[in-house]
Write a protein that binds this DNA or RNA. Structure first.
Lengths: 315, 315
DNA sequence: ATCGATCATGCACCTATTGTGCATGGTTAT
DNA sequence: ATAACCATGCACAATAGGTGCATGATCGAT
C-alpha cells in the first residue's frame, strides 16, 4: 500500500473500482493484483462496517452505500489536495514525486521536455511519465498514479468539464494542418482550404478512435464530406501513407513531421479552420500547488515554441 | 496502524503531537511506543516531502508547515466524519466499533448503562468505555481512540466551545446537592440554602482540580465565603468525611450516595442554585451518525431518570 | 560542574499486515 | 457444451510497521 495521499489507499481503490466496474480492471489500473484489490475492498467494508459491494452476475457491483461513499469522497480528495498544495506553498517545500500522463503526441512533444526541464530545476524531484490515452489519463489521476495529465478536450467525453474530481486548464488550441504528397499540385502552396481538398482521398484514424470524431467534426464545420480511403492508428503510419501518395491527411501542428519523405505540411485557411483543444487536467484542489503551476507554465511555453516554429522550420 | 478512519494514521498522530508537544506524550495517548511515533512522523515527512518537525532543545517542535497542515486537517477530518455518518444513514448500515469516554461519574452513571443498552440493541457492536478526565477526553477524540465523550463543561477549558474539531451538545444541567451528617440540625429538612450553611466546615476537592473552580463559583454566586476544612479527591472519600462528621460538602446529583452511613443529601434552594453542565462531545461531522444520535438519546434518557429519582429514592 | 531526569532516535528483532500466483467455482456468451 | 471471464480463497512471500532497549543530547537542580 503505497500511500502518497493522506486518504486511505483502500478508499482510493474503491473509487477506481467505481469507474472500472470490475476487480480485474481496477487491479490493472492501480497496479495491484486482482486478489489484492478483492482483499482491500473486503477489508474496507469490514473496517467501515458498511456493505459496499454486491454480487452481480459473474462480477460485483457497488451498493447504494458504496456509490454514496464514492461520490462523497470527491470533496474529501479535493480538500486534501488543496491542503497539501497550500502547505507546500506556505512552507516553501519541495515535492518528492511527480507523475505525468499524456497521449502520444503530448507525451513526446510536451511531457518529455517538461520532465527534462524539471530534472534540472528540481534535481531532487522524481518524475515519472506515462503515455496513456485521455480516458485512461483521467483514470490514472483518480488512481493517484499521476498528478497531471495532458489530454485533448473531447466534447463527447465521459468526463465532463465540471467533474468534481478534476480541474482543467486550456494549454493551447492545436491547429490541424494538412499533409499532402510533395508531388501534389497544391504542394507549393503555403495554405489551402478544406474545400480545395474535398475530392482527395483521405487518410484518417479508425472510426471510434480518439481523433476520428475530431476529423469528422473538422469536415462538417467546413461543409465538406471527405472520402475516406485509408485508416491508420499512429501519426507515423499516416505520414507514411501520405508519403507513398495514397492520399492526404490531417496532422496536428504539435505532431512533428520529422524527416518524412515526400510529405508537405500546409496550413489550413478559410471556413472551418480546425483545431484540437489541448488541456491539462489535475486533481481538484491541486491546481494551486507550486509544482503544478510551474509545470503548467513550462508546458504552455514549450507548446507556444513548437507552434510558432512549425511548419516553417519543419518542412 | 489501526485505521478506523480513512485519514492516514500518521496524520492523526501528527495532530495528536500538535496538542501534546512531545513524542512521549503522543505515544501514551495514541497507544503507540515512542519509537513508533517517531518513525511515523519521519515517514510522514518523507512521503509528503515536507519538513514538519524541528529539533528544539531536547524535544521537537512543529514547523510552520506542520502547524499549517494540522490546522488545515481539521476540516478534512470533519468532512470525513460527516461523510461516514451520511453513508451510514443512507445505507442503513451498522457500525462495528464504538469508543466512549467520560469522567468518573459520567463513566459509571451514564456510559456504563449506555454501553449495556447498546449491547442489547446492537449485539454486533463492539463498545469500549474509557474513563478519563475532560481534557484527556478531547485528546482521545482527536486521537480517534473514542468517538463520543461525556464531560463537564468548563468555562476555563483549553478547548473552546467552537473548536473546529468538535461538536458539543448539552446533555443536562446536573444540580449540586448538599450532603451533611444525618445528625446535623438541618438533616431533617428537605431543602437548604447555601447561606444557611455559610458557617459550616466544608469539604472540597484539592485546589486546581477539575471541580474546585465549580465549587468556588457556586459560593461566589451565593455570596458566601465557605471555610474549607478538608480536601478529598473522589466523591467516595468526601462522602466518608461527611459521614464521619468532619463537615459538609457539595455532591452532584448524578453521583450516587449508595449505602453511605450517616449522610443525608439535601437539595439547594434560594439564591445561587449551583449546577454543573454536562455535555457530550463528538468529532465534528459525526454528530449526524445514527449511532451517535441514538447514544445521545439514551444518555439524555438515563440522565433524566437518575435526576428525577434522586434524592428521594436514594436517601 | 555534576548528576539525574527527560526526550528523541537509532538499531535489532519480531509480528502481522498486505501483497502475489495459482486454483477454484460461478456466470455469461458462442 | 465449451470457452471465456470474473471474483475469491488459499498457501506462501515480502515488507511495512511495531516493540524494547541503548544511546546521545539537553535541561534543571543541587
Amino acid at each position: 500500500m503505497h500511500n502518497r495521499c493522506m486518504i486511505d489507499a483502500r478508499l482510493i481503490t474503491l473509487r477506481v473500482f467505481a469507474r472500472c466496474g470490475t476487480i480485474g480492471a481496477t487491479a490493472e489500473l492501480t497496479g495491484y493484483s486482482p486478489s489484492a484489490v478483492s482483499a482491500q475492498l473486503r477489508e474496507l467494508q469490514r473496517v467501515l462496517g458498511m456493505q459496499l459491494l454486491t454480487k452481480d452476475g459473474r462480477g460485483v457491483r457497488l451498493t447504494a452505500t458504496g456509490r454514496f461513499l464514492v461520490a462523497g469522497s470527491d470533496t474529501l480528495i479535493a480538500d486534501w489536495e488543496s491542503l497539501r498544495a497550500a502547505a507546500m506553498q506556505a512552507g516553501d517545500q519541495v515535492q518528492s514525486h511527480f507523475g505525468l500522463g499524456g497521449f502520444s503526441t503530448a507525451a513526446a512533444q510536451l511531457l518529455a521536455p517538461l520532465a527534462a526541464t524539471l530534472r534540472t530545476t528540481r534535481p531532487l524531484l522524481e518524475v515519472q511519465v506515462l503515455e496513456a490515452n485521455p480516458a485512461r489519463c483521467f483514470d490514472l489521476l483518480v488512481a493517484e498514479r499521476i498528478d497531471l495529465a495532458v489530454i485533448v478536450a473531447m466534447q463527447s467525453d465521459t468526463y465532463a468539464e465540471d467533474d468534481p474530481r478534476f480541474e482543467q486548464t486550456v494549454l493551447l488550441d492545436d491547429p490541424l494542418d494538412v499533409i499532402i504528397p510533395s508531388d501534389h499540385p497544391l504542394a507549393s502552396r503555403e495554405t489551402v482550404t478544406l474545400q480545395e481538398l474535398a475530392s482527395e482521398p483521405w487518410i484518417t484514424e479508425a472510426a471510434g478512435s480518439t481523433y476520428h470524431s475530431l476529423f469528422t467534426a473538422a469536415f462538417t464545420a467546413a461543409g465538406v464530406t471527405p472520402r475516406i480511403a485509408h485508416e491508420a492508428v499512429e501519426w507515423e503510419t499516416q505520414i507514411a501513407f501520405v508519403g507513398a501518395g495514397l492520399g492526404v491527411g490531417l496532422l496536428p501542428r504539435l505532431a512533428p513531421l520529422r524527416g518524412a519523405e515526400n510529405v508537405v505540411r500546409l496550413r489550413i485557411t478559410g471556413r472551418g479552420k480546425p483545431s484540437r483543444r489541448i488541456v491539462a487536467a489535475v486533481r481538484r484542489g491541486s491546481i494551486t500547488s507550486p509544482l503544478i503551476q510551474e509545470s503548467l507554465g513550462i508546458l504552455q511555453l514549450s507548446a507556444n515554441r513548437i507552434l510558432t516554429a512549425r511548419p516553417e522550420d519543419d518542412l
